[in-house]
């Protein structure tokens, strides 16, 4: 089967699932409407979900769970960090935009890395230069302006986990 159609089927099943979870009604009209709308969604936007063929293996699932736990922990720290900065009478900010190097190549992995960095304490992704594989990070409390220490402080928290999940 072609990859596009495979992706469409996955999207169809996912949209059906979302529909039934939202409505939780199992009358005939509801089920038919759900199937029709899922079909339309899969037809028009289905081919973008799965782009490359990869085999399923258990290790990736474990790393995904590890990544989610890590992300949750970092988000908790980020919230308390921002709360501390905001409440502090002197506003201890020392902002700046630094460069961070990354080893990730795939689009999905880069997107997740940028999102994770935005959700972690004190950092916000401003732009990605894919050719040089450099991320521009706005850092609310700059500890070092150079490339390597900044990479160690910001990027490496998630990079290993994401490498296992996506690459």
């Amino acid at each position: 089967m072609k990859l596009e159609n495979k992706s469409r089927i996955v999207v169809f099943i996912l949209s059906c699932l979302v529909w039934f979870l939202i409505t939780l009604k199992f009358s005939l009209a509801s089920i038919v409407a759900g199937l029709i709308f899922s079909f339309i969604t899969a037809l028009f936007a289905g081919e973008i979900l799965i782009i490359t063929e990869r085999k399923f293996h258990l290790g990736r699932v474990i790393y995904t769970i590890g990544y989610i736990i890590k992300l949750f922990w970092e988000m908790l720290k980020a919230n308390f960090n921002v709360a501390y900065i905001v409440i502090h009478p002197k506003l201890p900010v020392k902002p700046g935009i630094v460069r961070v190097k990354t080893n990730l190549k795939r689009d999905s992995a880069l997107t997740m890395l940028a999102n994770s960095i935005t959700l972690t304490p004190g950092t916000l992704t401003v732009d990605i230069d894919k050719e040089k594989s450099i991320l521009y990070i706005h850092w609310i409390d700059v500890k070092s302006k150079e490339l390597e220490p900044a990479t160690r402080d910001i990027g490496s928290r998630f990079e290993k986990l994401l490498e296992e999940v996506f690459e």
């Binding site: 988000m75 980020a78 919230n79 960090n81 921002v82 709360a83 900065i85 905001v86 506003l91 900010v93 902002p95 935009i97 935005t118 959700l119 304490p121 004190g122 950092t123 916000l124 401003v126 706005h138 609310i140």
Partner: peptide, 16 residues
């Protein structure tokens, strides 16, 4: 309200 510029404000807005 308190942070100085748009980037710092975005930090607070996204996280909290």
């Amino acid at each position: 309200v308190r942070l100085p510029d748009v980037y710092n404000r975005l930090q607070a807005a996204t996280k909290c």
